[in-house]
Design a protein around this nucleic acid. Structure first.
Lengths: 337, 337
DNA sequence: TAGTCTTGCTTAATCGTTTAAGCAAGCTGG
DNA sequence: CCAGCTTGCTTAAACGATTAAGCAAGACTA
């Protein structure tokens, strides 16, 4: 006598209870006027039948898919896991799914990726742009996570303030000769980090910048950065713009017989997966990705609900210094033991 | 006189051309009987109008969303970027989108994540299970990527063969005393890798196994693995089950003043993002993720089209040894210079 | 007691696509 | 010359949810 084996939908549940589909919809969504008694009965039956609303039908009717797109310049970046995890969590808390799109490191494909997402009907897109690429405004809410100094930025870590923390930390340890190591001078994020560091170096402190992509282009990808030479000429602090660079510096220096942190200190950024696992463990600066993701998703959801473009508040979320073992007093410092 | 500003859909395009929606649908999909002349006219108008079919409507009608789910035990695993990239590429080539779901490292949430995906209407799920967790069979096509020795496995790297490559390489270099470093003995993948290594060690070669998770649980997470002691007692080859462990070994040994690869060799697995960047660069074994992803997605797509469960061919995709700088002849070897 | 309001449900339209079925015209073969 | 096929299109019915509008009955107000 039961209503058959077909997958339960609103109509079948309604039929099995002798009410109209509209009433079932209202009961489950809590929207229309339904008596408590009937509503309870409906919920019970729906639960028992294992009813799952068809997202497709809902999307068709309401015009909202309940899915956000996530676009990254290069999905294979080591920071991607943390970002994806944070975004996925924030989105799923807000009731959204996350569709990923990869531009495989190719800037030209970034636009393709965005289009693929739009074709799939995403309600909004979280995008972390490649270097200085401009995001074309497509008719779809977007939240941009880049750096507070990027125009159109929605939210991001306060990389400048993060840089300041690094500088304050190393300066207070007694360091007076820095090498700042970055990848690419076109990156707003990297420039902010380096700018933040510089802004807190007292007069008389030396701080050159080494851009690794340029270096690699000139000397080959796996070449030595010549850091041991820098040590010989007095540098005691290597402040890197990313943990990947810090790791490269650490192993190169270790390999050259330079002791870390006894002789030199090294710091990184982002607290990547390996950073706590190496010996000595990396001192680094962490982004508050959960908060950044929440802010981005909230902005997006609000824009979707209001049918507007997301506010570009451009708030900078404070970064957090994680002091581990690669930073210490420089040699000859009175407090060094 | 144009058909208005509303977003173009089949009916509006049809109206503007004076044909029926069905004809437009047929023309664009190339399915029904439409004259070449009309079909061309329709395509031209659709292109000009920037027509995008509504995925929601199509999904509702056909019962297929064109989206695959991707479930990982822990999205923050450093291998995730490569996996996600490979799956996304394979899926998008096959015309599918990829929805991610994270179980945040919590096995209990793995099932939740799967349910979230099903609620969203995915057509199939690619799942990389956590350790030895059983995947409950939900009424939805799934492709499992784990290890050939896992029951229900769809496709994966041939970790055993990968292990054999490591062993052959190190043995041929002259190593006779091994320490095999793994994380967790419950992992099929890790056991396969270690088993493969062992299977190729000649008689008389020593090979103890160090399980790091157990070690950390006993001695604290950031504790030394005591590798220098192993070197003192004659070990010359450290074969790790992952690059993360290899990196930990490398930095610990470097820190202890042991020279790599002059005194000891180290190998890893997976060719993670940092592996080529450290000094000396890691010798490792890489999975053919594009091929694995393609196989998994193909199996899934086929199962979706045929409305069946994916074949559990359990094919093992060969791994590829990447020889870099952390492996060399042991000290005192005749061929060592 | 008549008028109005509230409650609790139903009716029916709608979102945009796919696709089986139908139909008229043109062609072919015996 | 007509039965039967092919061609090229149209008609119309889904798919499953949401939601505005409607309606009957009971409750309240004056």
């Amino acid at each position: 006598m039961s209503a058959g084996r077909a997958t339960p939908n609103l109509s079948r549940i309604a039929a099995s209870l002798g009410v109209s589909p509209a009433t079932v919809s209202n009961a489950l969504s809590g929207k229309g006027r339904v008596s408590a008694e009937v509503a309870n009965r409906i919920r019970a039956v729906a639960d028992a039948a294992g009813y799952m609303p068809s997202q497709a039908a809902r999307a068709l009717r309401t015009g909202r898919s309940g899915v956000l797109g996530l676009v990254l310049p290069d999905i294979s970046h080591p920071l991607f896991p943390q970002i994806a995890q944070a975004i996925e969590h924030a989105a799923s808390t807000a009731g959204y799914g996350v569709l990923i799109a990869d531009s495989r490191g190719d800037t030209a494909l970034q636009t393709d990726a965005i289009y693929r997402l739009i074709e799939r009907g995403v309600d909004g897109i979280v995008i972390i742009p490649r270097l200085g690429t401009r995001i074309v405004d497509i008719g779809c809410p977007m939240a941009v996570i880049d750096s507070p100094s990027t125009p159109g930025n929605t939210v991001s870590a306060d990389h400048w303030q993060g840089g300041q923390q690094v500088a304050d930390h190393l300066v207070s340890l007694g360091h007076r000769a820095f090498l700042l190591i970055g990848n690419n001078p076109l990156s707003n994020v990297q420039n902010d980090r380096i700018g933040g560091i510089r802004s807190r170096l007292p007069a008389g402190v030396s701080a050159e910048v080494l851009w690794v992509e340029k270096h690699d282009a000139e000397h080959g990808a796996a070449s030595s950065l010549g850091l041991a030479t820098r040590v010989a000429s007095g540098v005691t602090a290597f402040a890197c713009v990313s943990d990947l660079l810090a790791l490269r510096a650490l192993t190169e220096l270790q390999r050259a017989g330079v002791r870390v942190p006894e002789e030199v200190s090294i710091t990184g950024f982002d607290d990547l997966a390996f950073s706590a696992a190496v010996t000595p463990a990396l001192t680094t600066v962490r982004m508050d990705l959960p908060r950044i993701a929440r802010t981005a998703v909230d902005a997006l959801v609000q824009a979707i609900d209001l049918d507007a473009v997301p506010a570009t508040g451009s708030s900078g979320v404070p970064m957090h210094l994680v002091i581990r073992q690669t930073s210490a007093h420089p040699p000859g410092h009175p407090a060094a033991d």
